[in-house]
């Protein structure tokens, strides 16, 4: 079983954040980076599948040189190798990104049985790339999967839509996008970190395309973080607490 997981390096923002002066990007001067939370579920799924069935887990990302940091962290969790399609740091539009990923997958000697994505990226949430990739490779795709079972070359996937559950079966190879609830992603261990430093990361230059989608501007929605309010200490606080529980409708 050969699994590919696609990731994206994204800034990890707090309750609010700044934009760059031209309002086209998030100002990341105070921010750290990680991968989108749903992609952590995808990596965890890949690690578990390879643990159970053997094979390999490959990571693929398109991003700046620094994205190697995110790849190494996920290698530390258990992936075997990684491919970094290096950009000059600009965010590529979904079409260009998908094309570059397709190009990279085709160039691989490994035939991937399963191509996993997070349901969406945490920063731009375009919901496009996996679909474009599946289409270009002529593969079936199931999105927004919360539970997944693989047997005899068939993936059985469960997705939640509103209050209903949908169950699909798809033959492999296939593209599946996953979300939280699929599993509990593990954190790296120190031995994992040490091994990750020795694992191969191929740096490749992807073919750039003229972007067809132009980002005009971003704006930050007003946050409504009122902050914590201390109602009191010990028994004294009970009346105030009761009031609050009434206001939010928990007590009558």
């Amino acid at each position: 079983m050969n699994v590919l997981v696609c990731l994206k390096r994204v800034p990890l923002a707090g309750s609010t954040f700044l934009l760059t002066p031209d309002s086209k990007d998030i100002d990341t001067k105070h921010l750290g980076f990680g991968i989108s939370p749903h992609e952590e579920n995808a990596v965890e799924a890949g690690v578990q599948l390879v643990e159970q069935m053997g094979g390999s887990l490959t990571l693929l990302t398109l991003g700046p040189t620094e994205a190697e940091e995110q790849l190494r962290s996920q290698l530390a969790i258990g992936a075997s190798r990684a491919i970094l399609l290096e950009t000059d740091g600009e965010d590529w539009d979904p079409q260009a990104t998908a094309a570059a990923l397709v190009e990279a997958v085709k160039a691989e000697e490994t035939q991937f049985d399963l191509l996993l994505f997070g349901a969406e990226s945490a920063d731009s949430a375009g919901y496009q790339i996996h679909i474009r990739l599946a289409h270009a490779l002529g593969l079936p795709i199931v999105t927004n999967v919360k539970s997944m079972k693989i047997e005899n070359g068939i993936a059985e996937c469960e997705r939640v839509v509103g209050t209903t559950r949908e169950i699909y079966q798809t033959p492999l190879p296939a593209v599946i996008t996953v979300r939280d609830g699929l599993n509990i992603p593990r954190y790296p261990s120190v031995p994992g970190r040490i091994q990750a430093r020795k694992k191969p990361v191929d740096h490749k230059k992807p073919t750039a395309q003229v972007p067809k989608l132009e980002k005009v501007s971003l704006s930050v929605a007003p946050s409504n973080t009122a902050g914590a309010q201390v109602l009191g200490k010990g028994a004294e606080a009970v009346p105030a607490l009761v009031e609050v529980l009434k206001t939010i409708g928990i007590l009558a």
Binding site: L12, A13, G14, S15, T16, F17, L18, H30, L31, G32, F33
Partner: peptide, 11 residues
């Protein structure tokens, strides 16, 4: 407000 976690906690 701008700190993701705490002002004195850098990535």
């Amino acid at each position: 407000a701008l700190a993701a976690l705490s002002p004195t906690e850098f990535p």
